[in-house]
């Protein structure tokens, strides 16, 4: 199908982009990689008045170090994220999860920031950002502000981004110490979104689990942390039994939906199995 007509702006800087958004009228959509927006427009489920295309805003692309953080430009494509040496070194969990997003063609266009701003609970990257305590740098007419991941994801497809604002970069704390990571994704066909997925980062110390961070994909309207499991793992022995025991509480505080692929109770079961597997792998077991 053909999208409904729209006005098109193609800024080359963040300032121009903010200007275009401000002038775009009632219903502005920001086009990052377009790999969700364009299909939705083709299906005429979205018919924005104005589309602001960020593809020429080169300052939004790329990954750099800034002290204890990695800074990922919002327009960095999935393909660039996957092959970035800094991400490989300091946040391999992001690379591992990004590699499972859709397919090669989509990863060539889709962007890190776009995926996060879209905030699809079935998308893979929000749970990863949440697990890694990423921070979201948002630009607006009145300057920039930083929002922690825990506050960024507000509801289904809804973030802390206000009207007229733009996600410009994501800051991910470098993990130091003996961290292991795993993204455990469960879906029926390769190309599909996660039915449930679990992002785990585990720090081991002297045969124990010192710290575990667990992000859950598609277990509610927003990505979630498996707080109860994280608490149970802190200081636990790095054994299959201890991990299995902790994983039993992975569904606590979740509110998964029911759809073709899984009803809520099955998702609650799956998340326990996947948490056990993800944590075990991250702990090197």
């Amino acid at each position: 199908m053909i999208p409904a007509p729209f006005a098109y702006a193609r800024p080359t800087t963040v300032d121009e982009a903010l200007q275009a958004i401000a002038e775009g009228g009632e219903d502005v959509k920001i086009l990052a990689g377009g790999q969700s927006l364009i299909p939705v427009m083709r299906l005429r489920l979205a018919a924005p008045e104005t589309v602001v295309d960020l593809s020429k805003v080169s300052e939004l692309r790329g990954v750099r170090e800034d002290g204890d953080s990695l800074v990922i430009g919002a327009m960095t494509t999935h393909a660039d994220v996957v092959r970035d040496p800094l991400i490989q070194q300091y946040a391999p969990l992001i690379a591992e999860a990004t590699e499972t997003v859709a397919d090669r063609q989509v990863r060539h266009r889709g962007t890190f920031g776009g995926a996060l701003a879209h905030a699809d609970p079935a998308g893979d990257l929000p749970a990863v950002a949440l697990a890694l305590d990423a921070e979201f740098v948002i630009a607006g007419q009145n300057g920039r502000r930083t929002v922690p991941a825990a506050d960024f994801f507000v509801d289904y497809l809804t973030t802390a981004l206000e009207e007229g604002e733009l996600l410009v970069e994501i800051r991910v704390p470098k993990l130091t110490g003996q961290w292991g990571m795993r993204y455990e994704k469960f879906n029926r066909v390769a190309q599909a979104w996660s039915i449930v997925a679990v992002a785990a980062a585990v720090r081991r110390e002297d045969g124990h689990i010192a710290e575990a961070r667990i992000g859950l994909t598609n277990m509610g309207p927003t990505p979630l942390r498996a707080r109860a499991t994280e608490a149970a793992l802190a200081g636990a022995a790095a054994t299959p039994e201890a991990i299995a025991e902790a994983a039993r509480s992975a569904a606590e505080g979740t509110s998964p939906s029911s759809d073709l692929n899984a009803q809520a109770d099955y998702r609650e079961h799956l998340v326990q199995v996947l948490t056990r597997r993800a944590v075990s792998a991250a702990a090197g077991l």
Binding site: L157, W193, S257
Partner: peptide, 12 residues
């Protein structure tokens, strides 16, 4: 499935 919904970007 709850994939898509009409917002900014990401995958298929």
């Amino acid at each position: 499935t709850n994939a898509y919904g009409g917002a900014q970007t990401e995958s298929t």
